[in-house]
Amino acid sequence: MDANFAKENEPMYDAPLGKNDVDAKDTKIAAKDVQVYYGDTHAIKDVSVDLLDKTVTAFIGPSGCGKSTFLRCLNRMNDTIDICRVEGLIELDGEDIYDKRVDPVQLRAKVGMVFQKPNPFPKSIYDNVAYGPKIHGLAKNKAELDEIVEKALRRGAIWDEVKDRLDAPGTGLSGGQQQRLCIARAVATEPEVLLMDEPCSALDPIATAQVEELIDELRASYSVVIVTHSMQQAARVSQKTAFFHLGNLVEYGETSQIFTNPVDPRTESYITGRIG
């Protein structure tokens, strides 16, 4: 049955599966028995997962299953929510990120994030991108900063659209442009891990392709985690896929395996569109 399923579905995903092969890589982030509570709601249950370095990992699952919540645990963004409680162990390069000695600010510089909803600052496009590099002192002078900003905007696939109006407010861009600006803003700080929460949900196919290209490029040096509702996108860009359902990590494995040969019946139903 699994074999049939694979054959039926293969043409749906245009990415050559060979590209998604994973070499032996180091673990970048290791999560063990993570539980997250919002007040009394148990949003993440017993999730253990090893996210690899220089790999794109896709989180898929129905709406409300806890993908964003788990993602936010990885750079301690949940600290800003008063009612949120995280238990369990999450290690970045073997170091517990919830340890008292770890500074969440430093951690977030290393683990960047692009949010589900675009949230540019009420500043100029230039200042939006320069914000992170300035805070972390990445540029020695204005020329260097200009260079960083341009590179980031290019990687965010938005340079051509905004190069003539870098002084215009970032909030004046269209929704899709804002999202790419936020991506540019996140990559400008050169994080080691980039967490992307549905980065393409507001983008057209061309911009989506550009962002996917960027993700693929980032993979050379970083670890990327992407939440997506598009199975095709997950299959195209990721090497590893994690399927969440009702706060549980149901299945985690090679993308090619998850999409062709899922072990859990729930995964199979989800990717074939039967539960959502």
């Binding site: 750079n75 963004m77 800003t80 600010v105 430093q106 951690l107 977030r108 510089a109 290393k110 960047g112 994030m113 949010f115 909803k117 949230n119 540019p120 600052f121 009420p122 500043k123 914000y131 992170g132 805070i135 972390h136 936020c182 803003r185 996140a186 700080t189």
Partner: peptide, 22 residues
Amino acid sequence: PQAMRDGSYGLGATQSETIKQV
């Protein structure tokens, strides 16, 4: 909006940097 703060914290800004600049 909280999203502004999240955006700033997500880039590794401290609280006072976030307040002053965003």
